[in-house]
Design a protein around this nucleic acid. Structure first.
Ligand SMILES: [Zn+2]
Ligand SMILES: [Zn+2]
Ligand SMILES: [Zn+2]
Ligand SMILES: [Zn+2]
Lengths: 128, 128
DNA sequence: TCACTAACTGAAAAATATTTTCAACTACAC
DNA sequence: GTGTAGTTGAAAATATTTTTCAGTTAGTGA
C-alpha cells in the first residue's frame, strides 16, 4: 500500500497511513466514522486523502442510500442493503454478465451493483 | 400519476405536477436542471417533492458519480457511464441474476447497476 | 548526514447543499 | 361553500465540501 502510493509519486505521510488504517478497520464507513478513528488528521486532509485514494483505485466511494461511504477496494464484491434494519452485507459471487454490452459498442471497465431487500434476520423474524 | 398520488393520500398540487412534468422532459437530471424547468416552485418544495416522489417509488434517485440525479421510475433499466466523455446512456436488457442470493436468506426487492467504461464514440474515435 | 524542494497539511474562510421552522395558503372531502 | 389536514416558501439554521495560504515535512540526492 505504501509502495503503491510512492510508486504513483505520492508521499506516504502519517495522515495517509492513518486513514488507510482506519479504512482497514471496517468496510463502508462514513467520513465521520473514519474521522473518529483518525483523531489527529484534519478534516480537510480527510477529504483530500479520500479523494486521492479513490483516484488511485485503492478506495471505493459508495452510495448506499445515506451519504457517501468508503471502503478499501481489495476484492470485487457487491452489497445487499436491508430496507428494514439497514444492515449492509457483502457478497462475492458476481451475478452480473456485461458481455451483451459489447454489442452496443460499449467497452466495460467496471460495474457497481447494489441489491435492496430484506436480510435473513428480518425475513425470518420480527422487524417489519 | 395524479391518481397514484391521491391514492396514497397526497394532494396533487400544481408544484408537484410541475416537478413531474420537468422529470418527464429528460432522464437523469440534477436538482438544478429540474429547477430550471420549474420556475415558480420554491427550492424547499423541490427537495420535499423529490423526497416524496422517491418514497412513493414514482421517482428514482441516482448516483452516477457527480451529485444526486433523478429520473422517472417507469421501466427497469440500467446506466452505462462513459469515463471519457461523461455520457450516460441506458440499456433495458438486465444482465443481473440475483437468484443465488436467496440461498443466503436475502429477499431481493430491487437492484441498481451502473456500468463504467467507454462509450462507442470514445472507443471508435478521438477522445482519450 | 544534511539541505533542498515539491508535496503536503490544517486553520480559517468561503462556497454549496440540505434541513428546519413557522405563518400563510389551498386542495379536496363533505 | 366550509373545514381542515396537508402543503408551501422565505428565512434561518445546519451540514457538507472546497478554497486559500502560510507553515511543515517526506523523500531525494549531494
Ligand atoms: Zn463493501
Ligand atoms: Zn460484480
Ligand atoms: Zn436512467
Ligand atoms: Zn436490472
Amino acid at each position: 500500500m505504501v509502495g503503491k502510493l510512492r510508486g504513483l509519486g505520492y508521499k506516504a505521510t502519517p495522515q495517509r497511513l492513518a486513514v488507510l488504517e482506519a479504512l482497514a478497520a471496517e468496510q463502508h464507513q462514513s467520513l465521520e466514522e473514519l474521522r473518529g478513528r483518525c483523531p489527529g488528521v484534519g478534516l480537510v486532509t480527510m477529504y483530500r486523502t479520500l479523494d486521492l485514494l479513490s483516484e488511485t483505485g485503492l478506495v471505493r466511494r459508495l452510495d448506499l442510500g445515506d451519504g457517501p461511504r468508503y471502503e478499501l477496494a481489495e476484492d470485487h464484491h457487491h452489497h445487499m442493503i436491508c430496507e428494514s434494519c439497514g444492515e449492509v452485507s457483502e457478497f462475492e459471487e458476481c451475478p452480473v454478465d456485461t458481455r451483451s454490452l459489447a454489442d452496443l459498442g460499449f467497452e466495460v471497465n467496471a460495474h457497481s451493483l447494489e441489491v435492496y431487500g430484506r436480510c435473513a434476520g428480518c425475513v425470518g423474524g420480527e422487524r417489519r
